[in-house]
Amino acid sequence: MKAVICKEFAPYANLTVEEVEDPQAGPGQVVIDVKAAGVNFPDILLVEGKYQMKPPLPFIPGGEVSGTVRAIGEGVQGFREGDRVVAATLLNGFAEQVATGAAQVAPIPDAMPFEEAAALITTYATTIHALKQRADLKEGETLVVLGAGGGVGTAACQLGKAYGARVIACARGEEKLAAAKEAGADELVDYDAEDLKARLKELTGGKGADVVYDAVGGPYSEPAMRALGWGGRFLVVGFAAGDIPKMPLNLALLNSRDIRGVFWGAWAGQNPKENGANMAELFELYTAGKIRPMVSASYPLDQVTSAFDDLMERRVKGKVVLTA
Rank of each mutant, 00 (worst) to 15 (best):
A87R: 00
N250W: 06
Y12M: 02
L254Y: 14
A148E: 10
V167L: 01
L253Y: 12
A209C: 13
F263C: 03
A162Q: 11
L254T: 15
G38V: 02
R314W: 07
D258F: 11
M312Y: 06
T287F: 07
T100L: 00
M247V: 15
F79W: 09
N271D: 10
K138W: 07
L143N: 02
L57A: 14
A3P: 04
R134H: 12
V34Q: 08
G67T: 05
L249M: 15
A135H: 03
A178W: 00
G75D: 04
H129Y: 13
L177V: 09
Y191Q: 02
A87F: 03
N92V: 02
A185Y: 06
M294N: 12
P55E: 12
E21A: 15
Q104S: 14
D310F: 07
A25N: 06
G217N: 09
Q24K: 15
I168D: 11
P272H: 00
G63F: 12
R172W: 02
G49K: 02
L177M: 09
F308I: 12
A156H: 01
P223L: 02
V144I: 09
G26M: 03
E182N: 09
P248D: 01
P11L: 13
R172P: 07
L282A: 03
P27M: 07
A130W: 05
F9W: 10
A224C: 06
C157A: 14
Q133N: 14
A185M: 03
A297F: 07
G150S: 10
C170K: 04
R226N: 03
N275V: 01
V31D: 08
K181E: 15
W230E: 15
Q133W: 11
K2W: 08
A227F: 00
A36D: 10
G265I: 03
G151S: 11
I44Y: 03
K132A: 13
G153F: 00
A179P: 10
G160P: 00
K54Q: 13
L188R: 10
F59R: 02
M247N: 13
P56T: 12
T16P: 04
E19P: 05
A185H: 00
G218V: 06
M294S: 13
V145Q: 00
A111S: 14
A179G: 09
Y12T: 08
E21Y: 01
K50L: 15
Q270T: 13
K201H: 12
P293T: 07
A227P: 07
D83A: 08
